[in-house]
Design a protein around this nucleic acid. Structure first.
Lengths: 244, 244
DNA sequence: GGAAATGTTTGATCTAAATCAAAAACAATT
DNA sequence: AATTGTTTTTGATTTAGATCAAACATTTCC
């Protein structure tokens, strides 16, 4: 910051007190940044940058050199692996507060694509790593969050390996509802940011099976389909029982 | 350590130089402990303890209060989730150098059971956490390892969600072979510590399908089945191609 | 507002893997 | 070595969900 001689006192004050991006970030309580103290936010803002992506934009591809960690501040991101011929496995649908990318050099383990308009904070691995050395509370927070991500990934093995189509869809809807609640959004009705094909590729099913399972839930009055992407859950208990 | 008055000088010296368990551990280069310096090993030995389990012994159950982190020094461990009625999803087969359990209080995310005779180092969460505060290199190592575990878990979603039975078994055999190589064991023939039922529960298949797929690999001369748990891979290229 | 493109639903048929069944191989115990 | 229990293999049948096909709904864009 450069302070010119003759600057007005009020103006000067304003410069000093200028809010950093992080200090004004309203998703921070739900993100790994929540471990930081107020006084560290200014510095932390400086090691990251704000970036926007529009619907269907690739944030990175699996074969790209892994350079960054991304933290979502607005919108949804899908991360997915391409098997070979064109088979897709969607790893996850991410929400504000979720982070993705890689700490390690090398390749990313998945592709990342914006669903709708997305805003992220981008951290270079190197800078984040340097910051961690200075503020170890962040290392512990990242360890806790990554460890929690791992338990979620393990839970998904059970879904993909052992649940039938009905159970998978029920669990999916429950999970979305809980995710929304976690970040302070209404948990009912739920808005599905992704299309049916994405749900299918996430659950290891086909689009037709997903559609049929939604219809079954509708017929049995467990959900009301307000529109294809707006689902009202009439009976959380029944849905939860179906989801195992 | 109690030093009695009148102790001989040679004896005294021996006490001081006594090797710690960690310093004599030969799996350390393959485990998260590899990040520690020689001079820290004695202290690190003191915050963990050695424990043995025999075949089929439960190390912990999913509903147990999560208190420990375990590090395998000998043998194999299977970690698995029980869905409800009795459906089982095996999350992973662990090898010497792998760790499991939980840093966080709460419940474990899976059950852990010994396959054959097993030796582990047990760390109490609290003690490990205190140690991390003193030696931050361990936090970074755990973050890197957990982050790597997460990528493996994500890869498994593709296997369970998108691969057919032939591809699943081929990938499984390749993975075992690579895992063995990683820790300096011969990568061919491979020894499978687990029974067919476990392979089925790991791959989201039935025992019959696993058996049939093994037979197909045998018939097509890609592997030789020395015994049901000893597999010689005749053609790594073909097996790798099958595994996608 | 209408055409084109994209996404969703429903029906008919097919198939990979599950289930059911039984024999064979192997290991453990007396 | 015979008995018992466990694990694996192979065959016959069934089935959940995939694939194929077509209509229907919704969004996008001149």
């Amino acid at each position: 910051m450069i302070i010119y001689f003759g600057m007005q006192s009020a103006q000067l004050n304003k410069e000093f007190n200028k809010k950093s991006r992080c200090s004004e970030c309203n998703i921070r309580p739900y993100s790994f940044c929540r471990c930081l103290q107020e006084e560290n936010l200014k510095e932390f803002s400086n090691i990251s940058s704000d970036k926007k992506f529009q619907d269907k934009a690739n944030i990175f591809l699996q074969q790209d050199d892994a350079k960054n960690i991304y933290n979502i501040t607005e919108g949804n991101v899908k991360i997915y692996q391409l098997i070979d011929d064109g088979r897709i496995q969607i790893i996850g649908f991410l929400y504000p507060g979720d982070f993705f990318g890689s700490y390690k050099n090398g390749k990313y383990n998945y592709c990342a694509e914006a669903i709708g308009d997305v805003r992220v904070c981008v951290f270079e691995q190197k800078k984040l790593d340097e910051y961690i050395d200075k503020n170890m509370v962040l290392a512990k927070e990242l360890l806790n969050q990554t460890s929690h991500e791992l338990t979620l990934a393990q839970d998904r093995m059970g879904v993909l390996g052992k649940l039938d189509a009905t159970e998978r869809l029920a669990k999916f809807l429950m999970n979305i509802s809980e995710q929304r609640k976690r970040i302070g959004w209404q948990n009912n009705p739920i808005s599905l940011p992704m299309i049916r094909q994405d749900i299918a590729d996430y659950l290891g099913l086909t689009i037709e099976t997903v559609s049929r399972e939604v219809s079954k839930l509708k017929t049995s009055n467990i959900v009301k389909v307000l529109s294809s992407k707006q689902i009202y859950i009439n009976d959380f208990n029944k849905l939860s029982n179906l989801s195992k």
